[in-house]
Amino acid sequence: MAFSANSSFLYGIAVLVIIFVLAQSVFFLVRAYRRGVEMGMAKEKLRRVMISSAVFTVAPAVSILLGVVTLSKFLGIPLPWIRMSVIGALTYELPAASSTAKALGVSLSEMVTDPKVYTAIAWVMTLGIMPSILLPPVLMKKIRGGVVKLRSRDEKWGDLFMTSMFLGMISAFLGMVFADVGKGAAGLIPILVLLCSAALMGVCGLLIKKKNMQWLETYAMSISMIGAMVFAVVIAPLLS
């Protein structure tokens, strides 16, 4: 059987994996929605969460699609499609592919045609990510137990604990934006984009509170993110 990185066999596998991911997502969505209704949460509110999450996801999803485009230049479409739909992220898949290519002494500047090189890359991508998928079931009971214990012992500290975790995570990403400051004007772009996004969110917050525009709450995150991305397109040519 002649190998091609874009064979219909590989597309077939990709479709099966995609169906599995969709099935798992729908399964959890339906259960959580039903439970929410059972608990007395308003259907309208639950729907608003769904719309808000869906709108918010589109721009990052296009950026993930860009990752598929990048990887498809040497791996064809099906494997990157699978990898980016399940577990993957470009920040992991690209180093995994380059590390294997380097070990085998092949270049990734053109399409991989040797099936053994292709399968080696596929295995490294798969094995490298396995802890992320095998550990949650192992550690869940312990972590979950810890959270419940924390809350039952001191509710106020429990809330502060969770908020601090979020803020710790957000701080790491906000701090990262300052990494390129030393690169001159172009290094300021991420900071300006961050400030633009923050300002847009601030304006949305004011409109929601002062003008009673509650509907805006559903779209505030998407507006600030996409608005800041458009801002990046406008200022990048001026600063680089």
Partner: peptide, 11 residues
């Protein structure tokens, strides 16, 4: 700049 655009608002 998708990360700064995302974390600015969330921040």
């Amino acid at each position: 700049n998708i990360l700064p655009a995302l974390f600015g608002g969330l921040g």
